[in-house]
Write a protein that binds this DNA or RNA. Structure first.
Length: 210
DNA sequence: CGTATTTGACCTGCGC
DNA sequence: GCGCAGGTCAAATACG
């Protein structure tokens, strides 16, 4: 995955002001509900949490005004469109299949819909794509109403892993990136920590030059 | 040449 | 039923 840095990091002073290099880096976003059927992505992914180092701000989503939390706790009831035209490929995590099967069963019976839980959080960053350690393949991009930035759709490239994520920059606050995860990884982190450390080191170098 | 990205078309759900 | 918006597919293209 490429981290693109079209804009120099120096373009945002406030961005740098938000940096904290302490060992605690950031308060961990509150873990998503850790029931057996719910993703525990954030709590299981220290590298992502670490990325908060140059995020340094986890806030509620717009009108929700949920402070102190990057985890927005979205149930994403607005995620109306799951693609059911094709049968999912290889079986993924059990939880994933449970959600899928429930959805199918529900569709047959015409009952209430069961959707995969989604978890979203905001990240203040100049780059859209945060290296969370997993490999993602972009499969779509859409213009979103009332937002001048497009939303990008990514899928985990690990065979059988059906985790998806959406990335979108806010119009109101262009420095803020909203990342939404759907599903739970059924495999360990695929990449070494090199990339993340590289990013961090770059930031630290820049910070030192201020 | 294999892999990743781009992008227009298509599908689905929802509100009116 | 129709139109809109969101989500996904897949062929074309770019890239290493």
């Amino acid at each position: 995955m490429n981290i693109h840095c079209d804009e120099p990091l120096s373009s945002s002073l406030s961005f740098m002001e938000n940096l904290s290099y302490s060992s605690s880096l950031l308060p961990c976003p509150p873990s998503p509900p850790l029931s057996s059927s719910s993703p525990s992505f954030l709590s299981l992914n220290p590298r992502l949490t670490g990325l908060g180092a140059y995020n340094a701000e986890f806030k509620g989503h717009g009108d929700n005004n949920i402070e102190q939390s990057g985890y927005l706790g979205l149930d994403m009831s607005n995620s109306s469109s799951l693609d059911h035209r094709r049968v999912p490929e290889a079986p993924a995590a059990v939880d994933e299949n449970d959600a899928e099967n429930a959805l199918k069963a529900v569709k047959k019976k015409g009952g209430k819909k069961v959707r995969k839980p989604k978890y979203a959080f905001q990240t203040r960053s100049q780059v859209d794509i945060l290296d969370d350690g997993y490999r993602w393949r972009k499969y779509g991009q859409k213009a979103v109403k009332n937002n001048k930035f497009p939303r990008s759709y990514y899928r985990c490239t690990f065979h059988g892993c059906n985790v998806k994520k959406q990335v979108q920059r806010l119009t109101k606050d262009e420095g803020m990136v909203v990342t939404t995860y759907e599903g739970m990884h059924s495999h360990p982190i695929e990449k070494s920590t090199e990339n993340f450390e590289h990013i961090l080191s770059q930031l630290q170098i820049y910070g030192a030059s201020l």
